[in-house]
Design a protein around this nucleic acid. Structure first.
Length: 520
RNA sequence: GGCCCCAUCGUCUAGUGGCCUAGGACACAGGAUUUUCAGUCCUGUUACUGGGGUUCGAAUCCCCAUGGGGUCACCA
């Protein structure tokens, strides 16, 4: 068999759909696994919009995830052009050939007539098929009509009485009865090609061996097979993978339903996280940025390998236990026969779990490099960061440990970046742990000289000294911890207390304790 | 409505006639560790849509029903 060639053919819609990304991933995996080529072809026959601009987010999503393409936009290739809008001559030639061979015909019926026929059939509960009245026209009559400028479309002549079938890698054998199919239009009145035609012509032209796409195209495949047959081309192999559903549903994930997703119990979490983070970097959840889009995950600070892992496991599994998989591992092990048949709901919780795992696999340097842009965008650190700031962020991230799940989580720790006088407090916590706790203020006051005297202001050293000190007072750490944390960070939770002290350093720690005492 | 596809825990899934009183992961609940949170460890709850067949034996094969979904354009 010739080299495997797969393709993904997005329309430039201005954003990359996360479900579409999963489909693209499977297609990409198949090509990579077999050492073949993955092609990006742009289905932009439906112009109107600014193509270049609408395409960028899609390419960006591929680049972010590291899914490179061998032929397509920006890089070209031996079968260029890769934009359908630039291939219309090929579709016209193919249609003309079909016409000449009598496998297609010019249909002069008006759209109104066709529509009326269709409605009548529907009313009578009878299957609509094309009337084929134009087929009865003599060559002279046709020439006449054309001379008059009578508009027509080109329809493929469906071989009535036959059946079309495919052997799908995922669905198995699927068959359709041609008697139930209207003759599909392959060329519009204005001479442009329709998707079902252009797509097939291109697949043949680009020597695509495997069409791996979403199952909503399954029904289209009947028409495409007929086109393939008419063209006398060898059909590619097909694999119709299930679509990606909205969390906990079986409904296709769609950007149109974004309003509804806000209240979806599982999706809700993603919206809330974004609401907390995005405004800090000057953005917000909207039509232009939401969890249906790949860009959302990038902006929120998910790791590509986490998203890739989640997408790989959505509708595919290796076995009964392997969960965490690198892209290379998936390439090695991906097979179409292990793709599940039913639609799979995107599970934000599971995504977050993968994210935690992959975050734990990243080096500190990586994390610092990836977190800094967030701090800079949120103006918590002025760009570019100084070496001292980088070093500090590194220490913070180390102290945070697994608390840092998303890269943007770093924005939840602004207490380490604000001036001591600008620190804000969790008022409920402050009331309970500092004002209402009779031990709190005296202990904090007494602690100051201890901190001043501490020889090395490190977490380990402070741990020893403060523990010993609290014991001499006949008290326990529990009496001090909460009040001290509130005083230092303004919060009730966070990294280990001694890590907090070390991070802030002697002077700032003492300043903050003094400030807390005065605000009681 | 026609055609087509699909159907195992809340979710993602394992399961291709006996290994299944159905396995894993996430989520959830409880416990342990701990100065908080996070993490980690242990434990637990929870599923084969229903009905008929076939078979010694069915989550697995067949049929029907039900449910869900996709698609029916001079959209892609």
């Amino acid at each position: 068999m010739s080299a495997v060639r797969t393709r993904f053919a997005p329309s430039p819609t201005g954003y990359m759909h996360i479900g579409g990304m999963r489909t693209a991933l499977f297609s990409w995996l198949w090509a990579r696994k077999h050492g073949g080529q993955f092609i990006l072809r742009i289905d932009d026959t439906d112009q109107q919009r600014n193509r270049e601009e609408a395409l960028q987010p899609i390419l960006r999503a591929f680049k972010w995830l590291g899914l490179n393409w061998d032929e397509g936009p920006e890089i070209g290739g031996p079968y260029a052009p890769y934009f359908q809008s630039q291939r219309s001559d090929k579709y016209k030639a193919a249609a003309a050939r079909l016409l000449a061979e009598g496998r297609a015909y010019k249909d002069f019926e008006t759209p109104e007539q066709t529509k009326a026929d269709r409605e009548a059939a529907e009313k009578e509960k009878r299957q609509y098929v094309s009337s084929r009245q134009s087929l009865a026209l003599s060559p002279a009559e046709i020439a006449d009509l054309e001379a008059q400028g009578q508009p027509y479309v080109v329809r493929l002549l469906v071989p009535r009485g036959e059946k079309v079938s495919i052997r799908d890698h995922i669905r198995g054998d699927v068959e359709w009865d041609c008697n139930l199919m209207p003759d599909p239009v392959i060329q519009r009145g204005d001479g442009s090609a329709l998707y079902n035609f252009a797509s097939v012509v291109d697949d043949v032209d680009l020597k695509i061996t495997h069409v791996i796409r979403s199952e909503e195209h399954l029904t289209n495949t009947a028409i495409q097979m007929l086109v393939l047959q008419a063209l006398g081309a060898t059909p590619p192999e097909f694999a119709h993978i299930p679509y990606v559903a909205a969390p906990a549903t079986t409904k296709k994930l769609s950007k149109r339903d974004i309003g509804k997703y806000r209240t979806n119990p599982q999706f809700k979490k993603l919206f809330e996280m974004a609401d907390a983070v995005l405004p800090k970097i000057g953005r917000q959840v909207s039509e232009a940025l939401n969890p249906v889009m790949v860009e959302y995950y990038e902006v929120m600070g998910f790791l590509p390998e986490a998203v890739l892992n989640a997408l790989s496991r959505l509708g595919w599994s290796l076995d009964d236990k392997t969960e965490n998989m690198s892209l290379d591992f998936v390439i090695e092990n991906f097979t179409l026969d292990r793709v599940v048949k039913g639609p799979a709901g995107l599970d934000p919780d599971k995504l977050l779990a993968y994210q935690e795992y992959w975050m734990s696999q990243r080096s500190l340097d990586d994390k610092v490099a990836m977190c800094l842009p967030y701090l800079e965008q949120a103006h918590q650190i002025a760009a570019p960061a100084t070496p001292e700031q980088r070093e500090f962020v590194g220490r913070l991230i180390t102290a945070l440990g697994p608390r840092l799940k998303l890269l943007s989580d770093i924005l939840g720790y602004e207490e380490y970046f604000v001036a001591d006088e600008a620190l804000t407090y969790d008022e409920k916590g402050f009331q309970k742990r500092v004002r209402d706790d009779t031990h709190a203020v005296p202990l904090l006051r007494d602690l100051i000289p201890v901190l001043q005297a501490s020889p090395d202001f490190t977490a380990a050293g402070l741990d020893r000294e403060i523990h010993a000190w609290i014991e001499t007072k006949g008290l326990q750490m529990g009496n001090l911890v909460h009040a001290l944390r509130l005083a230092l960070t303004g919060k009730t939770a966070g990294p280990g207390l001694f890590e907090c002290l070390e991070l802030l350093g002697r002077e700032r720690s003492i300043a903050r304790i003094e400030r807390a005492i005065t605000r009681v």
